[in-house]
């Protein structure tokens, strides 16, 4: 894995997603010039801080690395607060401080692998699908609330089968949870791997099934972060007695440096 680096990158463009009903979209792909780091693992993240944050927004914002090619780095985001609102106003040529790649990526195995994505949790899986050399071993279950065209699904449709379930009515969530459990059990029987990224309640459900069905499962967490490098101790989650580092068992561990990807039995989400 390459050493992380901090660099000032130029915005190539900002592409809105899912602009269909005349309303302003909240989903964007921010294309940045390629940073100096080349080696990265899907599931790792980066801190992004446009110079337009000035002094009034002190923190960078953490984003899972969506995709990187020889030409560019893609940061896919949804507008949820002050920071992403200001990011939605970025234009070609603007400057953005980016530090990464940060944290630990997902496991990559030559085994059946089920990708469980909830909403924006799909982002790190875009890179995962592109970087995996056995895409035929990958399947994805994607639960989402906004229309499908809000998410960057098209770029992976050619490589894997994405089963998407939109939550729009009562009962949809139950359906998602039902198929989630069935799929996890299937993969477990094949000694496969489950990877999940999404909102906390979604991850809690996946974790519960993982422990119950004894399926090898990794969860990617998100949290508010000030630094992304392990210093501010703001993004901690509680580890369990199964945590591999003895001194850090049953202890608050930084999501940024010890995660964001954790094995399901090694952290508590309560």
């Amino acid at each position: 894995m390459s050493q992380p680096a901090s660099s000032l990158l130029t915005v190539l463009d900002l592409v809105p997603f899912g602009q269909s009903n005349g309303l302003d979209t909240q989903f964007f792909a921010l294309r940045l010039e390629r940073p100096s780091w080349t080696a990265w693992k899907p599931g790792q993240f980066m801190m992004v801080r446009p110079t337009s944050f000035g002094l009034d927004l002190p923190w960078g914002r953490p984003f899972g690395i969506c995709h990187m090619t020889a030409q560019h780095l893609i940061c896919f985001f949804q507008v949820v607060g002050r920071g992403t609102q200001r990011m939605a106003a970025l234009k070609s040529g603007d400057k953005v401080q980016v530090w990464g790649p940060l944290g630990n990526g997902f496991a990559m195995e030559d085994k059946p692998t089920l990708l469980l994505a909830g909403g924006m949790g799909i982002v790190p899986f875009i890179g995962y699908v592109h970087e995996h050399h056995q895409p035929w071993n990958l399947t994805m279950l994607f639960g989402h609330r906004q229309p499908l065209n809000c998410y960057p699904v098209d770029s992976i449709n050619e490589r894997i089968t994405v089963d998407s379930l939109r939550e729009s009515a009562v009962g949809d969530l139950d359906n998602l949870i039902f198929s989630l459990r069935e799929r996890m059990a299937d993969v477990g029987e094949q000694n496969g791997l489950v990877l999940a990224c999404g909102p906390l309640p979604f991850l809690k459900t996946v974790q519960q099934f993982a422990l119950e069905l004894k399926v090898r499962t990794q969860l990617s967490l998100e949290n508010k972060m000030a630094c992304g490098v392990g210093a501010c101790l703001g993004c901690v989650c509680q580890s369990t007695e199964n945590y591999p580092v003895a001194a850090k068992r049953n202890w608050p561990v930084q999501v940024c440096t010890h995660g964001p990807v954790f094995w399901a039995d090694q952290i508590s989400l309560d």
Binding site: L57, P58, W59, K224, G234, P252
Partner: peptide, 15 residues
Amino acid sequence: SGNPTPRIAETTSGM
């Protein structure tokens, strides 16, 4: 082990 989370909050020009 420190305090429970949330432990940090961004404020205007500070935290």
